[in-house]
Amino acid sequence: METAVKTKWSVDNSHSEVGFKVKHMMISTVKGHFGEYEASIVSSKEDFSDAQFGFSAKTASINTKNDDRDNHLKSDDFFNTSEYPEMTFTSTSFNGDKLVGDLTIRDVTKEVILDVDLNGVAVDPYGQTKAGFEIRGKINRKDFNLTWSAVTEAGSIVVADTVTLVIDAQFVKQQ
């Protein structure tokens, strides 16, 4: 019996973003991203239906365009980047639309389900084969011990519990 050849794909950081958004005071949305991350896919099928996804991000690379907020997010109130320098994701299944896997933030690992759109596969002008994905999902930050909370004088929650993951990733086929 012939075994399928597995192809490795590596993230193209210059054409990708690992972002998130969360409600602030329930009236506006704050967006951010992680600047330092790695991701890969291993698949033997051109439609990626058997793909295995792996991801890690340096938690200290969080960027919301506000130094005070970023420093708070790096503190023990949230990511505690000194003790937990990375967050990781390892897929357990992928059916082309839904990506299921284990997300680890701080010292907590939980199964998450993410929606995936494969935007296509194309060869760039330099002969490299690339694949583009849009990955979306929601997590409850408190499930991962990101539990800091505050309430305004008017009773509004300062930071919502639900965080929306917004990942746009382009991968390069490795030879």
Score class of each variant (00 low, 15 high):
Thr3Tyr: 11
Lys6Val: 15
Lys8Arg: 15
Trp9Thr: 02
Trp9Ser: 03
Val11Gly: 11
Val11Met: 08
His15Met: 03
His15Glu: 04
Lys21His: 14
His24Thr: 11
His24Pro: 09
Ile27Leu: 15
Gly32Ile: 03
Gly35Ala: 04
Gly35Arg: 06
Gly35Glu: 06
Glu36Asn: 13
Glu36Lys: 14
Tyr37Ile: 02
Glu38Phe: 06
Glu38Met: 04
Ala39His: 01
Lys45Ile: 00
Glu46Tyr: 01
Ser49Met: 04
Ala51Asn: 06
Phe53Ile: 13
Phe55Gln: 06
Ser56Lys: 14
Ala57Arg: 06
Ile62Leu: 01
Thr64Asp: 08
Arg69His: 05
Arg69Tyr: 05
Leu73Ile: 08
Leu73Met: 12
Asp77Met: 13
Phe78Cys: 08
Asn80Glu: 15
Asn80Cys: 09
Pro85Ala: 09
Pro85Gln: 06
Met87Ala: 14
Met87Asp: 03
Thr88Arg: 12
Phe89Asp: 03
Thr90Leu: 11
Ser91Val: 07
Ser91Phe: 06
Ser93Glu: 14
Phe94Pro: 03
Phe94Asn: 07
Asn95Tyr: 06
Asn95Phe: 07
Asn95Pro: 04
Val100Lys: 14
Asp102Thr: 08
Asp102Glu: 15
Leu103Cys: 10
Leu103Met: 14
Arg106Cys: 09
Arg106Thr: 11
Asp107Thr: 09
Asp107Arg: 10
Val108Cys: 02
Thr109Met: 09
Val112His: 08
Asp115Leu: 12
Asp115Thr: 15
Leu118Thr: 12
Val121Asn: 05
Gly127Leu: 09
Gln128Glu: 04
Thr129Tyr: 03
Ala131Ser: 13
Ala131Arg: 05
Phe133Gln: 02
Phe133Val: 01
Lys138Asp: 15
Ile139Phe: 01
Ile139Tyr: 00
Asn140Cys: 04
Lys142Gln: 11
Leu146Glu: 02
Thr147Ile: 07
Trp148Ser: 06
Ser149Cys: 00
Ser149Arg: 10
Ala150Ile: 01
Ala150Thr: 01
Ala150Ser: 12
Thr152Cys: 12
Thr152Asn: 11
Ile157Tyr: 02
Ala160Tyr: 07
Thr162Val: 14
Val163Cys: 03
Val166Gln: 12
Asp168His: 10
Val172Lys: 05
